[in-house]
Simulated assay, not measured.
Amino acid sequence: MQQVFISGLPYTASENDVQTLFEECGEILSIKLPRYQDSNRLLGYGHITFNDSDAIQKALALNGSQLGGRYIDVKEAKGTQSQKPSVPPPECHTIFVKNLSYDLNADQIGDSFRPCGKVANVRMVYNTVTDNFKGFAYIDFEDHQSVIKALQMNGKKVHGRQVQVDFDIKKPKAGFRYSTKQVEQQNKYNQEYQEIQKKKIKKEKAVQKVKKIKNFAETQKQISAQRNKQQI
């Protein structure tokens, strides 16, 4: 896996614009363009991951090309060997969610992702100066499969905002706020959710049982009617 670093991108550019410029270089595995949290505009740089080294050389040849009226710089990315894997490893139990509404609390964030699996913890990131929520958080699940399901939430709306979801394999950093009370509340919600699921499954089984009884009764009725005809 090979990667280039591009800078000088116009703030109004899109992933499709970058794709169009570099697609002839070779197979593109991913395009990552960081954006401002509030305006969703590009930060002006990004990374493109190609499938082979030949594509890298062709991409480097586009250094100085124009995109949206601006000249862009294309360089080989540093430390590509230490880049995180393209899929979450089995030991990964955490996702990173950004573009969340600023007025959400940990319970609301956790509830939004609870259908994906058991939420062990929600770590919200706050501005250390203003003490305001910065709009992104980390969610720890109890198992790896929940992470796989949660990644399918990428691009979907959570409380009116389209969120971006990715898996995270880094250790927690400073800036998170969570308490024992919050964890207890999350455990309570987990239990309530599991109870709801159990009742739902129990109800579905009861419905299936009734259907089987009705089908059996109808079958017996048809057999009885057939026997009566034969006797006549």
Rank of each mutant, 00 (worst) to 15 (best):
residue 199 K to A: 14
residue 84 K to V: 04
residue 105 N to S: 13
residue 219 T to Y: 14
residue 225 A to R: 13
residue 214 K to C: 07
residue 176 F to V: 07
residue 160 G to V: 09
residue 34 P to A: 15
residue 123 R to A: 09
residue 223 I to S: 12
residue 153 M to R: 10
residue 124 M to H: 00
residue 51 N to Y: 07
residue 196 I to L: 13
residue 187 N to P: 11
residue 60 L to P: 01
residue 170 K to I: 12
residue 192 E to V: 10
residue 58 K to T: 01
residue 109 I to S: 02
residue 135 G to A: 11
residue 65 S to A: 13
residue 105 N to C: 13
residue 142 E to F: 02
residue 34 P to L: 15
residue 135 G to P: 02
residue 128 T to G: 01
residue 43 L to H: 07
residue 8 G to F: 06
residue 220 Q to N: 14
residue 6 I to N: 05
residue 162 Q to Y: 02
residue 43 L to P: 00
residue 53 S to C: 10
residue 49 T to Y: 01
residue 12 T to M: 12
residue 98 K to Y: 05
residue 110 G to Y: 01
residue 206 A to M: 12
residue 141 F to G: 08
residue 145 Q to Y: 12
residue 199 K to P: 00
residue 201 I to F: 08
residue 169 I to S: 15
residue 92 C to D: 05
residue 129 V to D: 13
residue 205 K to A: 10
residue 172 P to H: 05
residue 71 Y to C: 15
residue 199 K to E: 14
residue 230 Q to W: 09
residue 201 I to K: 09
residue 60 L to A: 05
residue 117 G to Q: 02
residue 77 A to D: 09
residue 103 D to M: 00
residue 164 Q to S: 14
residue 98 K to R: 15
residue 29 L to P: 04
residue 116 C to V: 03
residue 194 Q to E: 13
residue 142 E to W: 01
residue 178 Y to Q: 14
residue 46 G to N: 00
residue 70 R to Y: 01
residue 69 G to F: 05
residue 220 Q to I: 00
residue 116 C to F: 02
residue 8 G to C: 08
residue 67 L to T: 05
residue 39 S to C: 08
residue 81 Q to I: 04
residue 174 A to T: 10
residue 164 Q to N: 11
residue 201 I to N: 05
residue 155 G to L: 02
residue 39 S to W: 04
residue 106 A to V: 00
residue 218 E to A: 11
residue 209 K to P: 07
residue 115 P to L: 09
residue 184 E to R: 12
residue 172 P to I: 03
residue 226 Q to A: 12
residue 139 I to G: 00
residue 178 Y to E: 15
residue 49 T to H: 03
residue 62 L to P: 09
residue 164 Q to G: 09
residue 224 S to K: 15
residue 214 K to D: 03
residue 206 A to S: 13
residue 191 Q to K: 15
residue 173 K to N: 07
